[in-house]
């Protein structure tokens, strides 16, 4: 069994979709291959006849400001994202999350597109994009379309992308005065390499009040979600001890964490979620304060 028979480098979206149509099946897209190739090699993903490599498509390799939006190409290696001054300025959560994916060598291949398309409920880059309320730009034989990040997922490991639909990139709002974001996670040194819990926060502060906030936790449920009721606790309120403890109580009531064998019990996850929330919200708040 070879992992692929034909590995094609696509140089444009049109070419990629065309190649997809004409390819000997089964076929799929590949970016960094850090997930896909390993899964095929280890037998958890069927072998492919054709792989279409998206790394050479220029518009997917861009990282730029477009008016009020930041655009991150889906095929930009995450090492570039984490080191990008632009991303550090506008979306620290994304810079922090991408900086934690794998090790330095993996980050030179891994992409945000692959991280999101893989649709794992605790993918670090993806969780940070949820807090940034990112919009995904996709391309398929029917052309470009835009989707909310949370609409991209169907279940664990199953994305809502069409077969020949390519994630081109992600957009989110540039950072305005008073806004800030942060990401953190807790790992377990042994056993299984996945994080026990990761967490991203974006917020806008106005004087001493949290005017708006977006919060995500992973893994929580089969598809990524926002902790909407926890957000509600903060919205319009001061970031006081009292607010934080109400937010923590709301995590216990409204966010779902389950026990994963050999990794973490749900109790531990609830415990960590509360601690992480307090830590990460405060970091985001302080960052927001720097530009208020």
């Amino acid at each position: 069994m070879t992992i692929w028979k034909d590995y094609q480098l696509a140089y444009s979206l049109v070419e990629a979709v065309e190649a997809y149509d004409q390819a000997e099946k089964p076929v799929c897209f590949v970016s960094g291959g850090t997930d896909l190739l390993l899964e095929i090699q280890q037998g958890s993903h069927p072998a492919m006849k054709t792989l279409i490599d998206l790394n050479h498509i220029n518009e997917m390799r861009e990282l730029k400001v477009m008016g009020e939006q930041i655009f991150i190409g889906a095929a930009v290696p995450v090492s570039q994202i984490t080191n990008s001054a632009l991303i550090k300025e506008h979306a620290m959560a994304v810079a922090e999350a991408t900086g934690l994916i794998g090790g330095p060598q993996v980050r030179n291949s891994a992409t945000l597109g692959g991280n999101v398309a893989h649709a794992l409920p605790a993918a670090d880059g993806m969780i940070s994009l949820v807090a940034m309320d990112a919009i995904a730009i996709t391309y398929s034989h029917s052309g470009y379309s835009k989707k909310k990040i949370l609409d991209l997922f169907k279940g664990p490991g199953v994305s809502a992308l069409g077969n020949d639909e390519i994630l081109v990139g992600f957009e989110f709002q540039i950072k305005k005065p008073g806004e800030g974001s942060a990401f953190d996670r807790v790992m377990r040194p042994q056993g299984v390499a996945l994080p026990i819990l990761n967490h991203a926060v974006w917020l806008r502060k106005k004087d001493d009040v949290v005017e708006d906030v977006r919060i995500s936790f992973g893994p929580s449920g089969p598809v990524p979600t926002r902790a909407l009721l926890v957000e509600e606790v903060f919205r319009g309120n001061k970031l006081s001890d009292e607010t934080i403890s109400r937010a923590k109580a709301t995590i216990l009531k409204t966010v779902k964490f389950r026990t994963s064998k050999m990794r973490a019990t749900s109790e531990y996850r609830y415990h960590l979620a509360q601690a992480l929330l307090e830590k990460v919200v405060k970091i985001a708040w302080n960052r927001a304060g720097e530009t208020e």
């Binding site: 850090t34 190739l37 290696p77 993996v106 030179n108 291949s109």
Partner: peptide, 26 residues
């Protein structure tokens, strides 16, 4: 051969990369 150990690291256009999971065609 599973992107964990780094023994296969080579430098491609200035960046360290794991050659065990880097398709040769790429």
């Amino acid at each position: 051969n599973e992107s964990e150990c780094g023994a296969c690291t080579v430098v491609i256009d200035g960046e360290p990369v794991l050659s065990c999971s880097y398709p040769a065609v790429k």
